[in-house]
Design a protein around this nucleic acid. Structure first.
Lengths: 236, 236
DNA sequence: ATTACTAGGTATCGAGTAC
DNA sequence: TGTACTCGATACCTAGTAA
């Protein structure tokens, strides 16, 4: 029986050169503006041959980290969210290493959601995960806080935090997306910020807690709530 | 004539697994406190075999990025400055990507140094580098600014910046350490902050400029000077 | 128990070249 | 021009095992 060395099993860690390529794309293609580089140019950029560069490009494309349009003379290369996520994860890990867990503070005003929160929160696929990873079953409804543009950017930086993972799943013929939760204090009261993996281009953020937050905080639409977010310290 | 594929020439980019190992060591061995891991454990940590882990350890050790003492049952592993530098460089690059070039502002009070600055600045080994990389020959003396503890921490964060490298060298039987320079404005006047690779556990920072700074700024011991540091934008 | 060598396999490179 | 295939050579992995 032959030996079975090497198992290219798990998510495959990107090669240094591929990671480098992602960084180059992030620098060159600041959101929506694709770079126009031939595989030859990419090769020179990375210090590898045209063939290797081409292989990298194809691999990254099939992994959904970049998009390529091979139309004209030079292919258009664009960093996709999955690729940016790859960079952000590494960034978060290193930042945590050098700067320690981050803390964030801002304020928002209570807003009415579309009632979607209640529906999503009651899905069993989410409920079991909340119970297990947050340690409680959330009140079936989210508190919606509307944020200023700058505070929204601030909140978005939690994307590079580790967070508590809530995995997506499929049930009754449709898919429910994943999210990351972050420990939060709303006017000093413990809660969790929920950051869905797929952003809705919204101007507000949502929180869950074991209790009915509007009641516990004594707030209603338009009231101001102070938010403090703290990154989990777990490093492994 | 056989082909000559593969040239493992340049500084060798670290493998993902090796980089991961450096991160683990940075987390585990917070300065001076070595980790005690067998190659078997390291392998499990990285998801590779004991043999591969061992190879990584030996490579990193010969590159001076980690130190190993193979004394007892488990080897003691410690991250060396070169290894930390490796991590810091990657961190700086990613931070620049996500946050843009950093800017820093603080204030200090003029203090008298020990006259060492004048001695070091007059070493030819440094002078040629200053002339070439800073574009001027500094006035033979440094301006010493005493900082508060918090401002000192702030200034220390330039360690993750790119900076202008001044390399160490040996001359007349002793060694002179390297440093990184960062563009600065002192009360609006251009200068460079010098951050020696080897910290002196000092409570002040030093600046150089083409001109005699005390004179040009019209300051003397105890006067306050405002400092603005700006990270170089060069990304490649 | 460790670390580290050897053997034999896979992964991945660059050159040549088809398209 | 470009991208992407084949192929020979090398880098690198794991298993077995010596030290």
């Amino acid at each position: 029986m032959p030996t079975t060395p090497h198992r290219p099993d798990r998510p495959r860690r990107p090669k240094p050169a591929e990671f480098e390529l992602l960084k180059h794309l992030a620098r060159a293609g600041g959101e929506g503006r694709p770079a126009a580089w031939s595989s030859m140019e990419v090769g020179k950029l990375l210090g590898v041959s045209q063939q290797a560069a081409d292989r990298y490009l194809r691999n990254l494309a099939t992994e959904g980290k970049i998009s390529r349009s091979l139309g004209g003379r030079k292919q258009r290369l664009e960093l996709l969210p999955a690729g940016r996520e790859e960079l952000r994860r590494e960034y978060g890990e290193l930042r945590r290493l050098f700067e320690g867990p981050a803390r964030l503070a801002f304020a928002g005003t209570v807003a009415s959601g579309l009632g979607e929160g209640r529906y999503y929160l009651s899905r069993p696929g989410y409920l079991v995960q909340f119970a297990e990873r947050l340690g409680y079953t959330p009140y079936p409804g989210t508190l919606n806080l509307k944020l200023s543009a700058s505070d929204l950017t601030l909140a978005a930086s939690t994307k590079s935090w580790r967070g508590i993972r809530i995995d997506g799943f499929s049930a009754s013929g449709r898919t429910f997306g994943g999210a990351s939760c972050h420990a939060a204090h709303l006017n000093g009261r413990p809660a969790h910020l929920i950051m869905p993996d797929r952003t809705h281009h919204t101007e507000s953020v949502e929180f869950i807690a074991p209790e009915f937050l509007r009641g516990a905080l004594g707030v209603s639409d338009g009231d101001r709530v102070d938010v403090v977010l703290e990154e989990a310290e777990t490093s492994a």
